[in-house]
């Protein structure tokens, strides 16, 4: 039986549920879970002050319900288990997580999966900026794992990511894959300006069709049908990333960013090159 946390009030003040994760709460007696300290504004309060608590996390599953837009850091640093969110969450969802799965039925804020090292995150709605990104001053964003977003995403997704996969069903904002070290970003909607700026290695697939505003430090290689994409498609379908239009024909390949190593690649639909 899962642990159910239902938020009942409507206040807009930030709530940070640091440590409220299946691997941490499993085996904790109910009273102790109720006393578990979380942050509410500038105060530390017991979990039970903000959430109605039902069930127990013995099966390593936590369900969140209610108004969660200002509930931040859900699943942050989680290493195992499963979190299911019915609704929309705040910032830092799955940040620095190292394992387990998180599913969100609605939207999520900025920093989804920032600096995560492994695990699987899927969000049905849209997300904010800096998905899988590095925090300021940090050298690396996500180093492994998968982030699947059904809706659209904001700016600087995958900033300095080192490995792992980000797939966005809708559009994404500017600077996707900024300073990317390696890994895979796939965007099925339109894409903002300067994707792949300063990327070293890695793959950015921009499959929304239409022109893509590439920097002058990207060079076109030609039109190909990449085998590896079929494997990624199969894997993402297996993990439930559905409803997107996978490109079936040939794709245009661009190499860059020549300013930083230049071993990155951007794939666009046929004729989707420079804007």
């Amino acid at each position: 039986m899962a642990l159910l946390l239902r938020r009942t009030d409507e206040s807009d003040l930030p709530i940070e549920v640091i440590g409220v994760r299946p691997d941490r709460l499993r085996g904790m007696p109910p009273a102790e879970i109720g006393r578990f300290p979380i942050r509410h504004g500038n105060r530390t309060v017991p979990l039970a002050e903000v959430f109605q608590i039902k069930g127990d996390p013995s099966d390593e599953r936590i369900d969140f319900e209610g108004n969660l837009r200002n509930v931040h850091r859900i699943g942050a640093q989680m290493s195992a288990g499963r979190i299911v969110v019915d609704g929309c969450t705040g910032w830092h969802l799955a940040a620095q997580m190292s394992g387990g799965t998180i599913e969100v039925s609605g939207d999520a804020g900025d920093w989804v999966g920032a600096e995560m090292t492994n695990g699987h995150v899927s969000i049905c709605g849209s997300v904010g900026d800096l998905v899988g990104a590095s925090y300021p001053g940090s050298r690396r964003g996500m180093t492994n794992g998968t982030i699947l977003v059904g809706g659209s995403a904001g700016a600087e997704i995958g900033r300095s990511m080192r490995r792992g996969t980000i797939a966005i069903g809708g559009a994404c904002g500017d600077h996707a894959g900024l300073g990317m070290i390696a890994g895979t970003i796939l965007v099925f909607g339109s894409c903002g300006r300067y994707p792949g700026a300063e990327m070293r290695r890695g793959t950015i697939g921009l499959f929304g069709g239409g022109p893509v505003p590439l920097l002058p430090t990207f060079r076109r290689a030609g039109r190909f049908r990449p085998q590896f994409l079929a494997l990624i498609e199969r894997e993402l379908r297996r993990t439930g990333f559905a409803g997107v239009d996978w490109p079936s024909g040939k794709l245009d390949l661009y190499h860059g960013d020549l300013l930083s190593l230049g071993k990155g690649e951007i794939w666009t639909r046929e004729g989707g090159g420079l804007a």
């Binding site: 793959t203 085998q227 590896f228 894997e235």
Partner: peptide
């Protein structure tokens, strides 16, 4: 050569 991890497996291109 390019490495890709897909699922739990690693591929070389």
């Amino acid at each position: 050569q390019i490495s890709k991890w897909i699922g739990e497996r690693r591929y070389w291109r």
